[in-house]
Write a protein that binds this DNA or RNA. Sequence first.
DNA 1: CCATATCGTGATGATACTTCACTATCACCC
DNA 2: GGGTGATAGTGAAGTATCATCACGATATGG
Lengths: 158, 158
Amino acid sequence: MDAPVTVLDRLLEISDLFQRDLAREFAGSSLTPARTRVLWDLVHSGPSTQHALATRLEVSPRNITGLVDALEASGYVRREPHPDDRRAVLVSLTASAAELMHEMQRDHAELSDTLLGAVAPADRDAFLRGVGAVADRLRDLVEAAEAGRSAARAGVDR
Amino acid sequence: MDAPVTVLDRLLEISDLFQRDLAREFAGSSLTPARTRVLWDLVHSGPSTQHALATRLEVSPRNITGLVDALEASGYVRREPHPDDRRAVLVSLTASAAELMHEMQRDHAELSDTLLGAVAPADRDAFLRGVGAVADRLRDLVEAAEAGRSAARAGVDR
DNA sequence: CCATATCGTGATGATACTTCACTATCACCC
DNA sequence: GGGTGATAGTGAAGTATCATCACGATATGG
């Protein structure tokens, strides 16, 4: 009865392996998972204020300050004054960082294909539907749990 | 052309959601992800030396010292002298921690079932095969990458 | 019995986060 | 205009998880 391997175990192993691969990829460079996340977001969202980054990445604005400091020092991003708001700064990727991120995006897609290629062709459609269904269900569960807590706390106020 | 959602994205989202759920679960208690990992390992492996823990969890022995310190202070584990080796200590779960871990194991299995329940019955077998295949493939890839690096470094010596 | 490896830990430091306090600015409203 | 209150970013201080290096205590194998 000790520890049958569940689907969840497998899914967690996958993400663990991926993270390890990412860490290995950037060993030696000044890029770290958290800093890479910032770059990744900037590719998708374009030049952003630090506040916007903090909101999208769900971390404190103070934390973004430190991450951008490091990325700026290593030449991955630039801080420019916001044209309409003198309080804010716009963080944007440097050309070389943009190039790097496109490479990473290609690698990411390629890895995704490789992994899908490991699935028997006859299973692929069902597999994709299954992954989507699990992600959706889990998202709902987490959302409900978090809303529950918020509601409990907000309950006193309302 | 900007960012089609890949399988890999979905898999990473799943693990991200799960981690967030775990963190929420233990908010307020003295348990943290890293400390929980130690407890989880002890359930599977039984009383262990800190060195064994460090090896299995792939972290430095020094780090284990700190994690066990915290777990011991909170009453989750006990440190006992190793019967055959006066250098080593045996770390074992307290009764209440063992109980807690069994609960967690039940919850984990239950969540796994719930997630699998979100997959259409006709897709389930293919989905399970697919998840296994992807995990296997990724494990091979990471292993090869790490072996490559080790080989490169060991190459000078041999 | 001595050289060497192993087990744990103190010291020190990096990264990734937090909250709190504070400044500079913006936006609104009378 | 001149407050007034929200917002953008950052300094200060603290926590958790990791790493490396040095060191003492012990085991082990000639």
